[in-house]
């Protein structure tokens, strides 16, 4: 059983930061993904017109959190981020950016998550990361 997409989207709507930068929860044939909408005011490098690295980091964190809500069966389980390591692989240009998370180990207290973000081609990621979450 996984949490329904609609429930996650309703919860996401309550998050002011998601609205500020344009984070949306969507679903494809492989599960849920988080989309960061192309917004001029997310730019952090004006020369190449690239999205701010902090916002890309936020996308990875948000995608991981929502993936955990999705996988951890019911919304009563809360998770809190412990840490995150981000590799910036390519400039994230002013287009929609997507992120998909994958749980590679779930323990009693800690979940290890990998996240990948891409724009046009999922096989050419713009950033990837791994994070630890505390669950209770």
């Amino acid at each position: 059983m996984t949490t329904s997409l609609k429930k996650l989207q309703d919860f996401n709507e309550l998050i002011a930061y998601a609205d500020l930068v344009g984070l949306h929860i969507e679903e494809d044939d492989q599960g849920i993904i988080t989309r960061l909408a192309a917004q001029q005011d997310n730019i952090g490098n004006e020369i190449i017109g690239a999205i701010h690295g902090g916002v890309v980091g936020g996308l990875l964190e948000h995608a991981a959190s929502f993936h955990l809500l999705y996988e951890l069966e019911d919304l009563k389980v809360t998770s809190r981020i412990i840490n995150l390591s981000i590799d910036y692989l390519r400039p994230a240009l002013l287009k929609d950016t997507f992120a998909r998370a994958h749980v590679y180990k779930q323990g009693k207290r800690v979940v290890n998550v990998r996240i990948q973000a891409w724009q046009d081609d999922e096989n050419r990621p713009v950033a990837c990361g791994h994070a630890h979450f505390l669950i209770a």
């Binding site: 930061y17 998601a18 930068v21 936020g58 964190e61 995150l84």
Partner: peptide
Amino acid sequence: FHSAIATT
């Protein structure tokens, strides 16, 4: 705050 604020 969203953790992304500290990240940014």
